[in-house]
Design a protein around this nucleic acid. Structure first.
Length: 493
RNA sequence: GCCCCCAUCGUCUAGUGGCCCAGGACGAAGCCCUCUCAAGGCUUAAACCGGGAUUCGAAUUCCCGUGGGGGCACCA
């Protein structure tokens, strides 16, 4: 494997909640950088002042850290290619735009937004493709300078070649050939003095010495522009990789707001910030997201280190991928089963305490092995194991009645079980299981009837971790008290 | 409307001309295990969008359809 260190970057805009697509690009960027011994950079693309949402930048920082994708350079940690927020790099773009105007690759444009809109309407009426009509393309430089000096508002446009084709090379798709006549004189610098995405990103990628640009395929349309900008400067091109888009779970259309709400109603989310609260783990999310767009033949359960080991941009896939939350569940559950007891204990504890439960670490450490393979999401620990941390349980009376028996018979069974347990010196599962099984035998009842009854009595619920191990953790005194209570309830029915 | 991209089981994918009557994973179905729920084990169903062309040979190359997706802003 070639070992030239790659510098990669994820460049989200702080305009909304960071979501899955950002997580995936960041993951691939991170994997590629780590694999090659390079750096992974976070850059904030905040040039659209109107759309910036306060707080979302912090959400990006937090989200990436939660995922374990710590960047080597970024706005909150610095680095030698900073600043890493585009609004703090105005002079850099200004400087470079002058270079392009100077070498004839770009020009100032004085057209107003109103004028542009009118032109566009007319073009559409004539069924032409909307494009800049070139009013300012050939303004004499002297005149332009005069108008600028006069305080006239202007933008800087890229002077796209009128003829020929642009060949842009994408690493997963090969050469993409576009007729220059299809291309527009895109705006590089807005009249507010800030750059557009196209300009800012290409300038920054060069300035920050980014070697591999990974981004969503929504950029394919303006890809030729970006390539032309790089070439107008005479800079070296990075390796371009356009990733597939995420489609809604049905596969029909790309993820929309509506799907987002739907996901939320079913306990899922496409926002990174929600994942933790919903009980998903960074390992699960990373693994899930990694495999949408990265083809792995077999053994697809991987942690970050294993992904670094195996990752290659040669195995990225170009086709759109429908997201599948069932698979998220699967990866999450699988990773949970791989966690050590201590690790998992630390991860589920907050879900208990969040519910106001008093969690003793001693008990928790004993509970975890019983819970581990039953958890799909971390917060499932609540439904399976809350009773471990409660003083009392209050089973629904009807649940105490064993299948096929009535209340009175159930009470008798419980009574018998109580006597058997009382006779044991301790409540270890090794000690208690044999005599109770013997009782099942001699009573002619089935295990389900006896143990089910006991389960509800001691845990308060019909579904629980394995009974005997569970009772052992609950403790002799509490178990006996709970069974006694159950008997009373049954006798009153 | 114009431009661009994509196309293997329901879904994510492996496959880079013969190893493919197409492999893995999720999901589904069945069986085993079993004190509930899980986990685990075994098994089954399930795909190369259509048509041409190249070739001794095509899921794999080319062309044309069709379908899906993206873009056509002083938004990213």
């Amino acid at each position: 494997m070639s070992i030239k260190p790659a510098r990669t970057r994820v460049a989200p805009s702080p305009t909304g909640h960071a979501h899955l697509a950002t997580a995936r690009v960041a993951l691939y960027d991170y994997l590629l950088a780590k694999k090659t011994g390079g750096q992974f950079v976070l850059r904030i693309e905040d040039t659209d002042l109107k759309r910036t949402v306060p707080g979302t930048e912090q959400e990006i920082f937090d989200g990436l850290r939660w995922l374990g994708l710590q960047y080597d350079e970024g706005p909150d940690i610095g680095g030698k290619f900073g600043p890493y927020r585009q609004t703090e790099r105005r002079e850099i773009y200004m400087h470079h735009s002058k270079t392009l105007v100077g070498n004839g690759s770009a020009y100032p444009c004085f057209c107003t937004a109103d004028h542009l809109e009118k032109v566009k309407q007319e073009q559409m009426k004539r069924k032409e493709n909307p494009h800049y009509d070139g009013t300012c393309r050939n303004i004499d430089p002297g005149e332009a300078a005069r108008r600028i000096a006069n305080g006239e508002k202007y933008t800087i446009r890229f002077k796209m070649p009128k003829e020929g084709v642009t060949i842009a090379h994408d690493h997963v798709r090969g050469d993409i050939v576009t007729e220059n006549a299809q291309l527009n004189d895109y705006i590089l610098m807005k009249s507010d003095g800030l750059p557009t995405y196209h300009f800012a990103a290409t300038v920054d990628d060069h300035e920050m010495q980014i070697t591999h640009v990974l981004r969503g395929s929504e950029w394919l349309g303006t890809f030729p522009l970006h390539v032309n900008i790089v070439r107008a400067f005479g800079w070296e091109e990075p390796v371009w990789v356009h990733l597939s888009v995420f489609l809604k779970p049905s596969g029909k259309g790309k993820l929309s707001k509506r799907d987002t709400t739907l996901a939320a109603s079913e306990g899922y989310s496409v926002f990174i910030k929600d994942m933790n609260e919903l009980g998903f783990t960074p390992e699960g999310v990373n693994n899930w997201v990694a495999l949408m767009g990265w083809g792995v033949a077999e053994d697809d359960v991987m942690n970050l280190d294993q992904m670094i080991e195996r990752f290659s941009i040669d195995h990225l896939t170009p086709s759109p991928a429908a997201i599948n939350f069932q698979k998220l569940d699967h990866f999450n559950a699988t990773h949970i089963r791989l966690f050590t007891t201590e690790d998992l204990a630390g991860r589920i504890k907050p879900y208990f305490t969040r519910e106001g439960l008093n969690v003793s670490d001693d008990v928790l450490l004993k509970v975890v092995p019983l819970l581990r393979e039953r958890l799909v999401t971390l917060d499932d620990c609540l439904s399976f194991g809350s009773f471990f941390f409660k003083d009392d349980v209050t089973p629904a009376p009807e649940d105490l009645i064993a299948k096929g028996l009535d209340a009175k018979q159930s009470a008798a069974v419980a009574q018998r079980v109580y006597q058997i347990l009382l006779a044991q010196p301790d409540i270890s599962h090794e000690r208690c299981e044999p005599p109770l099984r013997a009782y099942v035998e001699e009573s002619g009842l089935n295990a389900n009837q006896v143990f089910g009854n006991l389960r509800v009595a001691t845990t308060g619920q019909k579904v629980s971790p394995p009974l005997f191990e569970t009772m052992e953790i609950i403790g002799r005194e509490k178990c006996l008290a709970r069974i006694k209570n159950a008997i009373e309830v049954l006798e009153k029915m």
